[in-house]
Amino acid sequence: MSQLTAITQYMHQALATDVTGHSVDHVTRVLALANKILVNEPTADPFIVQATALLHDVYDDKLFDTPKAVAEAKLALHTFLIDIAVSPTIVAQIFQIIDNMSWSKTLDGDAEALDINGQIVQDADRLEAVGAIAIARTITYGAVKHRVLYDPKIAPQTQQSKADYRQANSTTINHFYEKLLLIKAHLNTDTARQIAQSRHQFMLDFLAQFEAEWVLDK
């Protein structure tokens, strides 16, 4: 069994029961997007990109109830990668990307710089937060977290810290203004920026239609 096959199986097991929009199908799309970007980035390491794309949500703190559970998931992943003979150097690179690629990590200004491998995975993951599927994932996540769908009296947050970004009293629709509509300006690669164009416009169209219908219904 190849290392990537084993990693894929590990990811399937880890995320099999996810209901937040960070499930196996999300990761599969991130991998596909990463592969599409890889075609135009010849200096990148395909194994590091593909392995990290597959594993980037395995110990995401949004998916666990306690910091202890996150730490345990991270340790289990480290042990697994060593057991399937991924070199310690590459393991360290995979973890460096996962630990520094998230949107929330960059809000406090303490994320480490990513090399081209990390930039590709970050772009692929961020593209999953732009477009039609992003709309569905956002509504799904909001429902799971019991967020209000929309309240025009609650303004989107600006100048957010990670704590502000994660606050519970924002709304699902506000999330578009707090993150999703900002992503297009924070992509690393030309390929990702090209993919984002039509997806970004689709979200703008959706929001305009949503708000028009909301007013009509009042």
Rank of each mutant, 00 (worst) to 15 (best):
D217P: 00
Y59C: 09
N174F: 06
K105C: 01
L187S: 09
T66L: 03
V121F: 10
W214G: 01
K68Q: 15
V24N: 15
Y177V: 00
Q167V: 01
M1K: 08
L54Q: 11
W103G: 00
K36L: 11
V215R: 14
D190L: 11
D65A: 15
E178A: 07
A185W: 03
I154E: 04
A168P: 02
A16S: 14
L127Y: 07
T8H: 13
V70T: 12
I154N: 03
L180H: 14
Q157N: 12
E178Y: 02
E178I: 01
W214L: 09
T138Q: 11
P156M: 03
P152A: 06
I48G: 03
I183F: 03
D123C: 07
M11T: 15
M11K: 10
F210Q: 08
L204F: 03
V30H: 05
I135E: 10
D205A: 12
K36C: 02
P67K: 07
Q119D: 10
A192T: 02
D123H: 07
S104V: 08
A212V: 05
M11G: 02
L4Q: 01
N188H: 12
Q194D: 11
V121R: 06
L15A: 03
V130F: 06
L127N: 08
H186T: 07
F176Q: 03
D110M: 04
H146Q: 14
H12D: 13
A32N: 09
S87F: 00
K218S: 12
L182Q: 14
K105Y: 02
F206V: 04
L216M: 12
D217A: 13
P42E: 04
L75D: 12
I173Y: 02
Q194M: 07
T5C: 03
L81Q: 04
P88C: 02
F47V: 06
A129T: 05
L204A: 00
A53N: 02
D60G: 07
Q209A: 14
G118D: 06
G142L: 02
I195A: 08
G131M: 11
D217Q: 13
F80P: 05
L75N: 10
N40T: 13
P152L: 03
E213L: 13
S170K: 05
T79Y: 10
K74V: 05
K184D: 12
Q9S: 15
D83L: 05
F64S: 02
S102D: 08
A111S: 13
V58R: 01
Q96H: 15
T140R: 15
R147H: 15
T17R: 11
A69N: 12
A34E: 00
D164Q: 06
H175M: 02
V144S: 03
P42Q: 04
D18C: 12
A132V: 14
L180V: 00
I116D: 13
A124T: 12
I195M: 15
I116A: 14
N169S: 11
I94A: 09
Q119N: 09
V121I: 06
R147L: 15
H78S: 05
L33K: 09
T172C: 10
Q93H: 13
A69R: 10
I48L: 14
A92N: 14
A196F: 05
L75Q: 14
I82G: 13
H146C: 04
V30Y: 11
K62Y: 09
V121Y: 10
A34W: 01
L77K: 06
S198M: 05
K218W: 04
K105P: 00
G21M: 10
I82S: 13
G21A: 07
S161I: 01
V215F: 11
I84C: 03
E211D: 04
G21H: 07
A185D: 15
